[in-house]
């Protein structure tokens, strides 16, 4: 099937098997291998990308469902130099093996927008924001992204620093 969409601000077209997931389209067809396949089941979050600004597990979505969509992967978060969030991950050692990191970064980017837009979470006291990026909100909203190296302290510190809410406590 033919597919036209935008990936990291660049128009792309593919003639693709309808069984190909968005993740595999990015990795194996567009050679954007920053997005990782940790489970292919929507259970780990390593494949998280932004679709029209919203974070999704790209392994759970077929590529051909994304006609006309705007996709941003970890490769699209930076423009030459690492973004402030990416630099903060390095500074705070928000990763060890680095395999979940692209998903953490895309997820954090989407998450910060969600909280700014007043989306509630399980950790929210009510359904009518606005919400502050407390540690409880951050941890709850980032728990879809597993890190077996367990760099959560560094991940949290990096996100909080980037969001201007100070080091994690």
């Amino acid at each position: 099937m033919n597919l036209s969409f935008t990936v990291n601000r660049r128009a792309r077209t593919l003639d693709i098997d309808p069984r190909v997931s968005l993740l595999d389209a990015l990795r194996d067809h567009l050679h954007l291998t920053g997005s990782k396949k940790g489970c292919d089941h929507g259970q780990c979050g390593a494949c998280t990308v932004l679709v029209n600004g919203r974070r999704i597990n790209s392994c759970l979505s077929l590529a051909v469902m994304h006609e006309g969509d705007e996709i941003v992967t970890v490769e699209g978060l930076s423009d030459g130099a690492p973004s402030p969030l990416q630099a903060a991950f390095v500074k705070h050692d928000g990763f060890q093996c680095g395999f979940c990191t692209p998903g953490q970064l895309c997820s954090a980017t989407g998450m910060l927008d969600e909280i700014a837009e007043g989306w509630p979470s399980h950790a929210s006291a009510d359904l009518d924001g606005p919400y502050e990026l407390t540690q409880a909100e951050l941890s709850e909203r980032m728990s879809g992204n597993l890190c077996r190296c367990s760099c959560y302290p560094g991940i949290n510190a990096a996100i909080r620093e980037t969001a201007g809410t100070g080091d994690a406590t």
Binding site: V74, P82, Q86, L105
Partner: peptide, 8 residues
């Protein structure tokens, strides 16, 4: 670190 946070 930079390679890992940029997907490279």
């Amino acid at each position: 670190g930079v390679l890992k946070v940029t997907g490279a």
